[in-house]
Design a protein around this nucleic acid. Structure first.
Lengths: 213, 213
DNA sequence: TAGATTGTTAATCGATTAACAATC
DNA sequence: TAGATTGTTAATCGATTAACAATC
């Protein structure tokens, strides 16, 4: 544990900053960025940008700003994106397959989207042995072995709600530390395992609220 | 505008409460639920459940609790889910197609997921005229007409980042009031239009942070 | 009635913003 | 040097929790 007690709200903004830095860094003439400019592009106040970065160190120079390339590399280090991260995906339905392709594209396009889906899992016999974009589909029985062998710490769950908790349990047992859950259920995981919910269903229902305002 | 100034944090929890109510409501013997029980199942404190509901009215009985069917119907009304909501989707790639199927499934399985994708749009000539699960794919030129004809107020955007802002502009011009954006860019929309970001890329990068803790 | 639980106000907690000394 | 912008502390704002009177 490197920095304890840094709030999730802070962590959530770091990838956003990193994306802005990569965007502006494409212009080789621009070497520096101020918290004002970085905040503008990320949709955050300059004070908050400085406060967020302040949790991790001093990355800027007073009167000057932040060196784009340096700050980007520091953010990659903080987010563990300085090395390639192997990811598993469980549930190779249409959403699962689409996410494999989506992640592959991000991996190609975004310089520091360093997450790589390396193994797929499904329980359906007619999918096992197949692949999506060249990534092999394994039976659930192979989960533990593959997670260990490939050093997988993050998994994406795109199985039906009814099996999501069971799959999460298996992932945790196999040693996975973070889960991106697309199933419309609240997963229960032990302390130390992180779950992010990508619940499209809830988001759409939430948007419906604003139709009456 | 019915209730002004209710925070987004509150609105975000309402669909969650609704989901719990539907879940427990399946058992016909259970007619009542306390804020304690509702909170437990939604992962929220009982005090917060009562405070959230309190913004919209008095739905419970002291000493008794909340009548499940009644509270559910009130939440549906508040979230505009008491009537079917037509939705458009722009960008019929693999992610777009997958979401069409996903939404179709939610529509079947969840009693009050009352959002219905009724029109798809793409710029690729070899997709136009086709369909996904029977829902027709229109050219972008047909957007304004279809949105007006079908009364579409919500759209899902699954186009590449490079065209997302342009598509958003067209959606806004056509009269769409809420956008669920899957493209990894920050969309700019006028006052009164709501954007929810479903940025899988950011979520995964965020999860990577927790691998070092 | 007695016990339970709501609705609501006051207290607390945490996150964001404002301000400014330090310093490049 | 003078102007600019960081790093950081104090002030403010908003959201959550605690507490309890009202009441079913």
């Amino acid at each position: 544990m490197r920095w304890s007690k840094i709030s999730d709200a802070v962590i959530r903004r770091l990838p956003l900053y990193l994306r802005v830095l990569e965007e502006v860094g494409r212009d080789p003439d621009v070497k520096l960025i101020s918290s004002q400019e970085l905040g503008d592009q990320a949709g955050v106040s300059p004070a908050l940008v400085r406060k967020d970065l302040g949790w991790f160190g001093e990355f800027g120079k007073q009167g000057v700003g932040y060196e784009i390339a340096y700050l980007a590399s520091e953010l990659r280090r903080i987010l563990n994106l300085d090395k390639e991260i192997p990811v598993a995906l469980v549930g190779v339905g249409s959403l699962g397959s689409a996410l494999v392709r989506y992640a592959g594209q991000r991996y190609e396009e975004e310089a520091s989207f360093n997450l790589h889906i390396v193994a797929l899992f499904d329980s359906s016999p007619n999918k096992i042995g197949g692949n999506v974009d060249g990534i092999p589909i394994w039976p659930m029985e192979a989960l533990k072995e593959q997670v260990a062998e490939k050093g997988i710490k993050i998994a994406i769950v795109t199985v039906p709600s009814s099996s999501a908790q069971m799959v999460a349990d298996q992932l945790v047992a196999a040693g996975v530390k973070a889960i991106l859950n697309f199933a419309p259920v609240q997963l229960t995981v032990p302390e130390g395992v992180h779950v992010a919910n990508a619940d499209v269903s809830l988001e759409l229902q939430r948007l419906a609220y604003y139709l009456s305002t």
